[in-house]
Design a protein around this nucleic acid. Structure first.
Length: 267
DNA sequence: GTGGGATGGGCAA
DNA sequence: TGCCCCTCCCACA
């Protein structure tokens, strides 16, 4: 379930398990074997998350770049790793614990140059403490593209995916088709701040929840299935605030959801 | 049991 | 814009 919060959470949990000592590196599936052979036994110096990208630093100009894509998934734990599974692209194991990766879009050994080029392609990441929103605000202010497309563009802002896109726009009462340059600067700054809030909560809990307790049927209990979103995947369901059926359309080749009444169409 | 869709993105055209 | 990558899960039979 990979939006930026998943990646930052993975980086944090994996640091405790495998950073700081020699790491056994294997590729049970075979598709990362050559690199695994090179890295096996090296000391893992750090793990960094940038948007939806994860970078493992093995020293000597060797980094492993991982992007989960739509299908990728981590498993991890303390102690000895379990029996190898069929579709396991790479497995890291230290004295403390293990990390296993399946189904990623990218899992490559890269140099520092390649790492820098990768990061240069990314906009600011709301989950990174050192990130400043100015480049995102400028890109949006200059663009005639719809804000729903811009929020999904990783070179504008890094880490937002299809769920956060729809939910951020609902919370801001902004229609996804609104051209970037017709938004007020305050609205865009508000989107950045809300992205930071929601992504941080997602990073902590490992789950995306965007509804405020007051807008849920059971405000005091835990967040039940089907109550965590305002609009995402709720086509034709009544809006939680005004009962208008939620609308859906393709935007940037992905389905975007919105409330036609709460989110007024921009020009 | 099975098949389609999914929280992504690079690439060709 | 559409195709491909290539895995899991759930709705449906």
């Amino acid at each position: 379930m990979p939006e930026g919060h998943t990646i930052h959470r993975a980086a944090r949990l994996q640091r405790e398990l495998i950073v700081g000592g020699a790491v056994r590196v294997e590729s049970p599936q075979g598709r990362f074997s050559e690199a695994a052979l090179d890295l096996d036994g090296a000391v893992l110096r750090g793990i960094e998350a940038y948007g939806k990208h994860l970078v493992y630093d093995f020293g000597d100009d060797r980094y492993v770049h991982v992007h989960l894509g739509l299908f990728g998934r981590f498993r991890m734990g303390r102690g000895e790793p379990p029996e190898a599974r069929g579709a396991e692209r790479v497995r890291f194991a230290s004295e403390c614990g293990w990390v296993s990766l399946g189904g990623p879009t990218a899992c490559d050994l890269i140099s520092d140059d390649e790492r820098r080029r990768l990061l240069a392609r990314l906009g600011p990441d709301p989950l990174r403490g050192d990130a400043r929103p100015a480049p995102m605000i400028e890109r949006i202010a200059r663009s005639s593209a719809p804000i729903g497309t811009l929020l999904m563009d990783q070179s504008v802002v890094a880490g937002i995916g299809n769920v956060y896109r729809a939910e951020l726009l609902f919370r801001a009462r902004v229609h996804p088709a609104t051209p970037g340059r017709s938004l007020e600067g305050d609205t865009v700054r508000g989107l950045w701040r809300d992205a930071r809030t929601l992504l941080r909560e997602g990073e902590r809990s490992g789950r995306i929840v965007t509804t405020r307790p007051a807008d849920r049927p059971h405000p005091r209990g835990g967040v039940r299935r089907g109550e965590q979103y305002y609009v995402y995947h709720r086509t034709a369901c009544p809006c939680r605030l005004c009962e208008t059926p939620i609308a859906a359309a393709l935007q940037a080749a992905r389905t975007v959801y919105w409330c036609p009444s709460c989110q007024r169409a921009g020009r």
